[in-house]
């Protein structure tokens, strides 16, 4: 679960990079950057949950 969280973090970053490289119009570029950050936030949720489970705390 922790590994998945870190992979998701990297995926979010790649999404942000792809938005910068591939999109020229400022609107879609900003939307994709925000989407990348949303993926990173999801990754943090996963990582914090993984940490709680590893510590034996109930969800």
């Amino acid at each position: 679960m922790k590994m998945a969280g870190f992979l998701l973090l990297l995926s979010g970053w790649f999404l942000v990079l792809a938005a910068v490289v591939l999109l020229r119009a400022s609107g879609p570029q900003a939307v994709f950057v925000l989407a990348g950050i949303a993926v990173e936030i999801l990754a943090f949720v996963l990582l914090f949950r993984a940490h709680r489970i590893a510590r034996g705390r109930p969800e």
Partner: peptide
């Protein structure tokens, strides 16, 4: 603000892992 968010995304998405 987009440039700043890209920096934040890089710290969280690349530096942390």
């Amino acid at each position: 603000w987009v440039a700043q968010l890209i920096g934040v995304a890089t710290l969280a998405g690349f530096i942390l892992p």
